[in-house]
C-alpha cells in the first residue's frame, strides 16, 4: 500500500465525518418535518459509511506495522 494512498483515505474519512456532523446540524435546525427526516436518515447512512471506511483504515494500519 502506497503511503500517498493511505493519506488519501484518511482525508476522505475526515470529509465523511464532516458530512455526518453537518447533516446532523442541518437536521436539527430544520423546521420542516420532511426535510428533518430525510437529513437525519442521510446522517445515519453517512455514519455507516464512516464506520466502514474507519475499519478499512484500521486494517491498513495494522498491515503497515506488521
Amino acid at each position: 500500500m502506497l503511503l500517498e494512498n493511505f493519506i488519501e483515505i484518511k482525508k476522505t474519512l475526515a470529509a465523511i465525518k464532516g458530512i455526518e456532523a453537518q447533516l446532523s446540524i442541518l437536521a436539527l435546525n430544520s423546521s420542516e418535518e420532511e426535510a428533518q427526516i430525510a437529513l437525519h436518515e442521510a446522517m445515519i447512512e453517512a455514519g455507516q459509511i464512516k464506520h466502514d471506511i474507519q475499519k478499512t483504515v484500521y486494517t491498513l494500519e495494522r498491515n503497515k506495522k506488521s
Binding site: E8, I9, K11, T12, A15, I16, G18, I19, Q22, L26
Partner: peptide, 18 residues
C-alpha cells in the same frame, strides 16, 4: 455540503480504482 458530498463520493470511487 452538497459539494463536499459530491467530492467525497468521487474520492471513494477514485480509491476503489487505485
Amino acid at each position: 455540503l452538497l459539494a463536499v458530498i459530491k467530492r467525497t463520493q468521487a474520492e471513494l470511487e477514485m480509491l476503489s480504482l487505485q
